Amino acid sequence: MIAAAGDTIWNNGGACGQMYTITCTGATNQGVPEPCKGGSVTVKIVDRCPSPGCQGTIDLSQEAFSTIADINAGKIQIDYTQ
C-alpha cells in the first residue's frame, strides 16, 4: 500500500518512507455521493505529488484507495495520521 505526498506534507523529502493511516471521511463535490467503505488503510509515502497537478494532500495508489472508498469516486475527503 503506497501513496504520494502533496506539498503540504512532503517536507523536502522528509515524508518519503513515512507511514500514514488514512481514513475516508466523505465525498467531494464530484463523483460518488457516499464513497466511504469504512475502516482505514496504512500506506507508505514513496513519491511526491507536486502542485499544481496534485489536487490533494495524499495521492493514494489505486489498491489503497479501493480499500477505503469506491474507486469510482476518484477523489475523497480524508483524515490522516502519521
Rank of each mutant, 00 (worst) to 15 (best):
G26N: 07
G17H: 11
E63V: 11
V43Q: 00
C49F: 03
P33R: 06
I76S: 07
V32I: 15
Y20F: 15
T28R: 10
S66C: 09
L60R: 00
S61Y: 02
T57D: 14
P35M: 08
G14M: 09
P52R: 10
I58Y: 05
C49Q: 06
D7H: 12
Y20D: 07
A64Q: 08
N11C: 10
G31V: 07
I58F: 06
Q18T: 15
G74T: 09
G6A: 10
W10P: 00
T57S: 13
I9L: 10
I9S: 02
G17K: 11
D59W: 04
G6V: 10
T42G: 08
T67F: 02
T25K: 09
T21N: 01
Q82L: 14
T57I: 15
V43M: 01
I9H: 06
T25G: 06
G17C: 12
C36V: 11
L60D: 01
V41K: 00
V46W: 03
C54F: 08
T28H: 04
S40F: 10
I2R: 06
G31R: 07
A4Y: 02
R48A: 10
I71D: 12
M19H: 15
A27S: 15
I78F: 10
R48P: 00
T23F: 07
Q30P: 00
D70F: 10
G13C: 12
C54M: 11
G13V: 13
C16L: 15
A73G: 05
S66A: 15
C54N: 09
Q77S: 14
C24H: 03
T8K: 13
K75P: 00
E63F: 01
P52Y: 09
A64E: 05
I22Y: 05
W10L: 12
M19Q: 14
D7I: 07
T81D: 12
